[in-house]
Amino acid sequence: MRRGIVFGFLLLLGFDIAAQLGFKYAALAAEPLAADAAWLLRVAAHPPIYVAMLGYVGAFFTWMALLRHAPIGPAFAASHLEVVAIMPIAMLLFGEEFSWVRLCGALAILGGILCLAADEAHGPA
């Protein structure tokens, strides 16, 4: 059971990362941003937007399956690991800059997930 939950979270993380990368690539390809039909057509013409959509659909179904077995508090916190995981990927692929503030934020997210998981492991007081 525990292995399945860990696998599910890794799968969720993969779907979320795929969605974020798909959106980023589609946004870059559809520049300049405009609220008109031509811009929507530019977005629709780029395959990364479909990767993003599939990522969100995959994440939705994975999340629904996880919620059947995982406690909601730690599960919700762990579902935000993509915020931490996407940072180094964005640095490599898009040249986004490193900052100490981002690193501190990532560490705070990881710390919160660990605290919730530890609390869940000890059960109710």
Results as ranks from 00 to 15, higher is better:
Leu110Gln: 05
Val43Pro: 00
Pro124Lys: 13
Gly4Trp: 10
Ala78Ile: 03
Phe61Asn: 10
Leu67Ile: 08
His69Val: 15
Leu11Val: 04
Gly123Phe: 04
Asp119Ile: 08
Gly55Ile: 06
Gly111Trp: 06
Ala52Asp: 03
Ala26Thr: 09
Tyr50Trp: 05
Ala117Gln: 07
Phe7Glu: 00
Arg2Asp: 06
His80Phe: 13
Glu96Gln: 12
Glu31His: 03
Leu67Gly: 05
Ile49Cys: 10
Gly58Glu: 04
Ala34Arg: 10
Arg102Phe: 13
Ile72Asn: 08
Gln20Phe: 02
Ala45Cys: 01
Cys104Leu: 10
Phe76Met: 11
Gly105Asn: 09
Arg102His: 14
Phe94Asp: 01
Lys24Asn: 07
Leu33Ile: 05
Thr62Tyr: 02
Gly73Lys: 08
Ile89Pro: 15
Met53Pro: 00
Trp39His: 14
Ala77Cys: 10
Pro47Asn: 05
Ile109Glu: 11
Leu40Trp: 10
Leu66Tyr: 00
Glu97Asp: 11
His69Trp: 07
Leu33Thr: 01
Leu11Glu: 06
Glu120Trp: 13
Trp100Val: 13
His69Phe: 08
Asp36Lys: 06
Cys115Asn: 10
Glu96Trp: 08
Leu81Ser: 12
Ser99Pro: 13
Cys115Gly: 12
Pro47Cys: 04
Ala27Val: 02
Pro32Ser: 06
Ala27His: 04
Gly58Asp: 04
His80Asn: 15
Met91Thr: 01
Glu97Phe: 10
Gln20His: 11
Ala121Gly: 13
Ile113Val: 15
Ile113Met: 13
His69Pro: 01
Tyr50Val: 00
Ala29Leu: 09
Ala45Glu: 03
Lys24Ser: 04
Trp63Ile: 13
Val51Glu: 03
Val6Lys: 11
Ala59Asp: 06
Val57Arg: 08
Phe9Pro: 10
Leu93Glu: 12
Glu31Ser: 03
Lys24Ile: 01
Val6Asn: 13
Ala108Tyr: 07
Phe9His: 15
Gly95Met: 06
Met91Asn: 00
Phe60Val: 02
Thr62Trp: 02
Lys24Pro: 04
Leu28Arg: 11
Ile113Glu: 15
Tyr25Trp: 14
Glu120Arg: 15
Leu107Glu: 12
Tyr56Ser: 11
Ala30His: 00
Glu96Asn: 09
Pro74Trp: 00
Ala44Arg: 06
Trp63Thr: 15
Ala75Gly: 11
Phe23Val: 07
Leu103His: 08
Leu92Pro: 15
Pro32Ala: 03
Met91Asp: 04
Ala38Arg: 04
Leu11Met: 05
Ile109Lys: 07
Ala30Arg: 00
Ala75Asp: 02
Ala125Gly: 15
Arg2Trp: 02
Gln20Asn: 14
Ile86His: 09
Trp39Val: 05
Glu97Trp: 07
Ala108Phe: 14
Ala27Ser: 12
Glu96His: 09
Val83Phe: 12
Ala29Val: 07
Lys24Cys: 05
